[in-house]
Amino acid sequence: MSTRDLVLVALFAAIIVVLGMLPPITLGFIPVPITAQSLGVMLAGCTLGARRGASACLLVVLLVAIGLPVLSGGRGGLAVFAGPTAGYLVGWVAGALVTGLIAERLVREGQPQLQQYLGFFLAAAVGGIGVVYLLGIAWLSYMSGKAFVETTLASLVFIPGDLIKAVAAALAGRAVLAGYPLLPART
C-alpha cells in the first residue's frame, strides 16, 4: 500500500467517525432514526474501491476495539463487540469490500450518469445492506439463543432506512467520482 493509499484509508475512516458524531435524522415514515455512519461505509466502497474501502472500515472497527468512542452516540470499547448487534459492525468490513468489488466492475468514468447511479446503488445495496445484514443476522441469531427467528424479523425494520442510505450513497458516490475520481477500474 502506497503512502497515499494509507492516508486515503485513514482520512475516510476519519470521515466515518465524523459522520457518527452528527445527530441522527428522523424521517416521518420510518420508525427508527437514521445515522449517517453506515452511509459512510457504503460510500467508502463506492469512493475508494474494495481494498481501500474495506481497510478504512477495518480501521474504524479497530478504533472501536481499542476503546475510542467513535460509533454514533459516542459508543465504543470492547462492550460493543460483546453485544448482540456486533455482527453489523464487523460486517462493515466485508460490506465495504463487496460494495467496492461491485462498484469497480460496474462504474467507469465517462459512462452516462444514469448508469453510474444504478451501478453505485446496486453496489451499496448488495454490499452495504445484503452483506452487512448477512453477518449481522448470523451473529444476532447465535447470540439470541432460541428466539433467533423473532429477532431476525425484528431487525428488518431497519431495511427501509438503509435503502434510503443506499440511494444517498449512489448520489454522493457519483458526485465524488465526478469531482475527484479515486475508484480503480476493474474488468
Binding site: A10, L11, A14, V17
Partner: peptide, 14 residues
C-alpha cells in the same frame, strides 16, 4: 500511523 492520522484529522473534518 493510520490510527494517529484518524485522531489527528477527525476534529479537522468536523
Amino acid at each position: 500511523l493510520a490510527v494517529g492520522l484518524v485522531l489527528r484529522f477527525a476534529p479537522e473534518i468536523l
